[in-house]
Amino acid sequence: MKLNQEEIKQIIPHRHPFLFLDEIIELESLKYGVGVKYVKEDDYFFEGHFPGKPVMPGVLIIESLAQVGAVILLSSSEYKNKIAYFTGIQKAKFRKSVVPGDKLVLKCELTKIRKSFGFGLARAYVNDQLVCEAEISFAIGEL
């Protein structure tokens, strides 16, 4: 299943300037998803990170990955109209800078869901090169 940004907004509550997904190119609810963020020169965070040498902040790469995880979870009818909150980030590694012009491919797999908590593995790529990876955990709450 593929989703454009408007369809993504029907699933997760994130909005500009904190929606970091342009599209979902693969989706299997409650299991796996692949999202894309087209990193643009005029993205607001480049103004201060860093002037003259723009680099996408690592925390925003992690947030982008988590948003893919949220789409995987919240696209299921079982979790419709819920919200996913970060509860942990483990083993995060940043391997390469993400800069304007990059197509950031965001892959997330949900590995375990227990009632109101879940866990996932997340990896981000640019040109098939791993730029970030982390284990994430989340709590499921009411919207």
Rank of each mutant, 00 (worst) to 15 (best):
M1R: 08
M1G: 12
K2G: 12
K2I: 09
L3I: 02
L3G: 08
L3H: 10
E6Y: 12
I8R: 07
I8V: 14
I8P: 00
K9A: 13
Q10W: 00
Q10V: 01
I11D: 06
I11A: 02
I12P: 06
I12Q: 04
P13V: 01
R15D: 06
P17E: 07
F18T: 00
L19C: 14
L19W: 06
L21A: 02
D22C: 03
E23G: 05
I24C: 04
I24H: 02
I25L: 08
L27K: 07
L27D: 02
E28Q: 09
S29C: 07
S29V: 03
L30W: 05
L30D: 04
Y32M: 00
V36T: 09
Y38T: 12
V39I: 13
E41T: 08
E41D: 14
E41G: 13
D43S: 02
F46N: 02
E47I: 14
E47D: 14
E47Y: 09
G48E: 12
H49I: 02
P51T: 00
G52S: 08
G52F: 06
K53W: 13
V55H: 07
P57M: 03
V59R: 04
V59Y: 10
L60E: 10
L60D: 04
I62K: 01
E63H: 10
E63V: 05
L65A: 07
A66L: 03
A66W: 02
Q67C: 06
G69S: 08
G69M: 06
A70P: 05
A70K: 05
V71Q: 05
V71T: 00
V71W: 06
V71C: 11
I72W: 05
I72M: 06
L73D: 05
L73T: 07
L74Q: 09
L74F: 05
S76D: 13
E78R: 14
Y79E: 03
N81R: 11
N81M: 07
F86A: 00
I89F: 08
I89W: 09
F94S: 07
R95K: 15
R95D: 01
V99S: 09
G101L: 06
G101C: 06
K103P: 07
K103I: 12
K103F: 00
K103A: 03
V105H: 04
V105Y: 09
L106C: 04
E109D: 14
L110D: 01
L110Y: 00
T111A: 05
T111Y: 06
K112P: 11
I113E: 04
I113C: 03
K115A: 13
K115Q: 13
S116V: 10
S116F: 15
S116D: 15
S116Y: 11
F117H: 09
F117E: 10
G118Y: 05
G120W: 02
G120V: 01
A122G: 13
A122L: 10
A122F: 14
A122W: 01
R123A: 08
A124I: 09
A124K: 07
Y125N: 04
N127E: 15
N127K: 15
N127W: 00
D128K: 11
D128I: 00
L130K: 03
V131K: 01
C132P: 06
A134E: 05
E135K: 12
I136P: 09
I136K: 05
S137H: 08
F138R: 01
F138E: 10
I140P: 04
G141L: 07
E142W: 05
E142H: 13
L143V: 13
